[in-house]
Write a protein that binds this DNA or RNA. Structure first.
Lengths: 338, 338
DNA sequence: CCGGACGCTGTTAGCGCTAACATCGACGCA
DNA sequence: TGCGTCGATGTTAGCGCTAACAGCGTCCGG
């Protein structure tokens, strides 16, 4: 049983396969009643043109490839949604490859598969240095754009402006009268984490506030935030002045909150906490979390827009997406200053 | 500038394109030194075989399509990861289509695109009735398996056993001495939500416990759980006996926890709460949440296994995946019974 | 020393489609 | 009326690949 082909439709409609092709592709110069006969035949047989054959002759699959790493985090997952939606809106399909870790070999294999599939463009989503390094060694014959990771030299990229986001958080805390802001950072090998840390530091510096040691470099998980919270609680009980904490993401902020709560430290009365990401759960943390929101849908849109423009040979350099601060109840005036 | 083809490699290696094909596909009967020459030429040019051309002649793209709806929830997102991983492990690529809503038209369009792309099999992931209904109207020329949604009549499907999961939760609560268990349900049009509700009810019935009215049919969001919690807190203050609550997912349990906390009701001293899903955040809720865990990786594996077996023409009917109860600190003995 | 088998390689056809060119009839204008 | 034009349709080639078959040299057994 051979699959349905254009010639089957042609036979049923009593025309040549080329006429069917013209109807399918909406060419002009087809007599209305011929077009109608062909359309009826298509509907009757349930015919769908074979994309492989089309791709073979057209040299384009109208497909984009997405490689991504460690997508269990909220941010990457949302970005992926945004990318898929934007791709589909532009008439492209998305083929995904979700890697466990960003080794150069795994990246290379994924990109290789995409190249073999003749995707029209490739999107790489990750914030880890490993991924960035692996990307740098790659030179696929189609445009490759990095999402949420500065691609290095001349690799085109889109991202959210982490530094600005962090500055927003710190500025908010300083405005509330806190003398300084402690930071629970993300992993050292994440560009995103470093961006947030850089923003935190530079905002403190430009406000003339002291820059404390980073409390802990977590791994984005609630559990590492919990560890940081335990350490911080001990220091506070030891008399150290810690009144404001900026956690590099909401999940760590959650762990932090739990540890602080256990340690009998009240948020926001004793300590203010800000996160980053705006998880759907964040408004229901105890207390509801002040955080920085990233617009992942917009990021996805720009990512797709950038590959498409590269495919057209344009040399566009999009602006980073601006994040926004959402103030809820986990932040308040510095103690003794209300 | 034409893209690299097999003939370019053949020319460089001084052989026919068919010999290149044999090398690429690992056929025997190629002289070792010829093979080596060809391999060198491939490496030198960075040649990758054109999957479209292969698919055209072989009739198989080694690609699976995944349609899914409302993937912002943790469960579906994790399942998708599991599916991608399992597909890649089996040597298949995954093309995804993430719909905003499960209208029949959108589903049909997505499946149509997959058929045009000549995917070898299709996976449909959703728990909503809309999606199930839309699926029922579809009859693609390749196997279509439903994941996490009973496909109806003869549509092959894999899923987690929601009912058993719910019974686990209820049994745990009853064993702690609670007279009965209240339920904060998920949306009425979700099969998953109904499965959890059915398990809750039947476990209560078989234990001879009274079956209270469902507190509220939420929409999986923390915010709907919060509403339920507000209502419940009011009823408790009004003197009603509510000591154990089973929320249909962790996010709603989180909202519930927040509302209970605000209402001055202690968990687990006054009320025990169980969720469903085991979010990464769940151990860090206040208090850490007892919940039911679903093994999404396993679900993904079975889903892929099922399509593949269908593609081979087998008629396999896999068992549902068994969930497991994780006891943390949000559940305790019924008040006055410690 | 010859014929058949076998191992290696090349040639050919065809997968389903689109672009380019060919054909054919109708119509308008001189 | 004749010819050019144009619109509708058909025919052909070729995209890059694999399967099937053909050719050709080598080696072994009788």
């Amino acid at each position: 049983m051979r699959a349905l082909a254009m010639s089957d439709v042609a036979a049923l409609a009593g025309v040549s396969h080329q006429t069917v092709s013209r109807v399918v592709n909406g060419h002009p110069n087809v007599a209305p009643h011929t077009r109608e006969r062909v359309e009826r035949a298509i509907a009757e047989l349930g015919y769908r043109p074979n994309a492989s054959a089309r791709a073979l002759v057209a040299g384009s699959t109208r497909t984009l490839g997405l490689v991504t790493v460690k997508i269990n985090q909220y941010g990457p997952a949302q970005t992926m949604l945004g990318l898929e939606k934007a791709a589909r809106a532009a008439g492209y399909s998305l083929t995904v490859s979700i890697l466990d870790d960003a080794t150069a070999a795994a990246m290379r294999a994924a990109v290789d598969t995409f190249v073999a599939q003749r995707v029209d463009g490739i999107l790489a989503l990750s914030t880890y240095d490993d991924a960035a390094a692996a990307l740098a060694t790659l030179d696929p014959p189609v445009p490759l754009v990095a999402v949420q990771v500065g691609g290095g030299e001349d690799r085109p990229a889109v991202g959210v402006d982490q530094e600005t986001g962090a500055r927003l958080a710190v500025r908010h805390l300083l405005a509330l009268g806190h003398r300084t802001v402690h930071h629970v950072a993300g992993p050292a090998d994440s560009q995103e984490a470093r961006g947030r840390m850089a923003g935190w530091r530079s905002e403190l510096e430009s406000a003339g506030a002291p820059v404390p040691e980073v409390v802990l470099r977590g791994d984005w998980t609630p559990s590492s935030g919990y560890l940081a919270g335990k350490a911080l609680a001990a220091r506070i009980r030891g008399g150290e002045e810690v009144t404001a904490i900026f956690a590099a993401n909401d999940q760590m902020a959650l762990g932090l909150l739990a540890a602080l709560h256990e340690g009998g430290i009240r948020v926001p009365e004793d300590v203010s906490v800000v996160g980053f990401d705006d998880l759907p759960e964040a408004p229901y943390f105890t207390p509801p979390l002040t955080t920085v929101r990233q617009d992942f849908a917009e990021l996805g849109r720009r990512g797709v827009q950038l590959v498409l423009s590269r495919m057209r040979g344009e040399d566009q350099h999009p602006e980073p997406v601006a994040p926004a601060l959402l103030v809820r109840s986990s932040t308040g005036p510095a103690p003794g200053r209300a």
